[in-house]
């Protein structure tokens, strides 16, 4: 893998321990977590100020809006690549998520290797 500067990564996940683990994994790979939020509105607001290189989105979030709403903003307004990390998806949700053209679907449990390959993909 080519040498690269660390990426700025956004994490949207309402389960704090899982987002902590994700942050650690990302940091351990030499990247920087520029935002770590727990809801879709918070994520969309944060995107007014920051421009991450990659975002990890949980689909099922607290509140009315879900991770797919964030994915839509990232895709249509900002053109920032993103990954959905989710434990369960019914076909309908999966289809709705796929329509926003994510970089990948990351099945939980999240493992370090998949995070590494995705970050490398974006960094290149």
């Amino acid at each position: 893998m080519t040498q690269h500067h660390g990426l700025n990564i956004m994490i949207v996940e309402d389960e704090r321990i899982i987002s902590m683990m994700l942050s650690r994994m990302v940091e351990r790979l030499g990247h920087h977590v520029c935002a770590c939020v727990t809801s879709a509105p918070a994520a969309i607001e944060a995107l007014d100020h920051i421009k991450p290189d990659l975002a990890f989105l949980d689909i099922n979030l607290e509140g009315e809006k879900d991770g797919i709403d964030v994915g839509m903003v990232l895709r249509e307004r900002l053109g920032i690549p993103f990954v959905y990390a989710t434990a369960y998806t019914d076909t309908e949700t999966k289809a709705r998520a796929a329509a926003t053209a994510p970089l990948a679907f990351l099945a939980k449990p999240i493992d370090l290797d998949s995070i590494k390959s995705l970050c490398d993909l974006v960094a290149d």
Binding site: M21, R24, A87, Y88
Partner: peptide, 20 residues
Amino acid sequence: HHRVKNNLQIVTSLLFLQAD
């Protein structure tokens, strides 16, 4: 089942953080 799976997910995350 969803909650149990989620909670087990959190347990594995905790173990990861501890190992880390």
